[in-house]
């Protein structure tokens, strides 16, 4: 399968360094302490944050800081062939690395003995669900008022038809040669999540990391705009009420 045409464009018409469209909405759930919804290409992911609240069971409590618990879950209908509900081994691993990555950014020492629970629900999957999930999760954490160094941003690069490109879609992920999901803290440029499968030379790896880092700065802007949009619309509602 050919993934890049003669003009250097990908099957969905993107350039090598082009992201799929990303849209984030904040405060989309009523009961949760914080929430966010992200559409990233064909990915649709909903995130809820609860906490900080008393960690349970008690032996999981850390007397000097909060624990960040992420649960990444795919809906049965989110993929082509129905996925058996409940966490499989892949979901357990992804939950673990997302929780660890978010913990890098959260000031956990401010909330001893508590847990901050992050529920990531993939409603529709289109490659890159973990990075869409972590990007929305940091926005939901802000929505819940959790103090952080910065919002973590996820982004992936990979290799298709021997060329390093940004943000693989489903076909590119299936038929490409490598995928490198990553998450960074934009303010410090620290890498907090990093996985890779496939085959890349050291130079290709360098290009991929650079592409993702650049894109992450742009996505960071989308996160901030989404948060601003929520508070702007609240302000407008208030003004509307007072003029009545």
């Amino acid at each position: 399968m050919k993934l890049i045409n003669e003009e250097g464009l990908r099957i969905d018409g993107r350039k090598f360094n082009e992201l799929r469209p990303i849209r984030i909405e904040v405060g989309v759930l009523n009961r949760a302490d914080g929430s966010a919804y992200i559409e990233w290409g064909g990915n649709k992911v909903l995130v809820a944050v609860y906490g900080p609240r008393e960690a349970f069971p008690k032996h999981t409590q850390n007397p000097s800081r909060a624990i960040v618990n992420a649960r990444y879950n795919m809906a049965a209908f989110s993929v082509d062939e129905r996925k058996r509900p409940g966490p499989d081994r892949r979901a357990v691993e992804i939950s673990k690395v997302i929780g660890e990555a978010l913990e890098c950014a959260v000031f956990t020492e401010q909330f001893p003995r508590t847990s901050i629970d992050v529920y990531i629900e993939v409603l529709q999957a289109d490659a890159g669900t973990r990075i869409a999930g972590i990007t929305a999760a940091s926005v939901a954490l802000v929505d819940a008022g959790i103090p952080m160094k910065d919002m973590v941003v996820g982004c992936a690069a990979g290799k298709i038809d021997g060329k390093v490109v940004l943000d693989l879609n489903k076909e590119e992920d299936n038929f490409g040669q490598a995928d490198l999901p990553m998450a960074i803290i934009p303010r410090t440029q620290e890498i907090v999540l990093l996985q890779m499968d496939g085959n890349m030379t050291r130079d290709e790896l360098d290009q991929a990391v650079e592409l993702s880092k650049k894109a992450a700065m742009y996505i960071s802007g989308i996160q901030k705009e989404a948060l601003l949009a929520k508070y702007k619309s609240q302000e407008q509602e208030k003004e509307g009420e007072s003029s009545e």
């Binding site: 890098c104 803290i185 620290e190």
Partner: peptide, 11 residues
């Protein structure tokens, strides 16, 4: 490089 994994809650 054929596979990578970062672990733990540091950067």
């Amino acid at each position: 490089v054929v596979a990578m994994q970062k672990g733990l809650s540091g950067s």
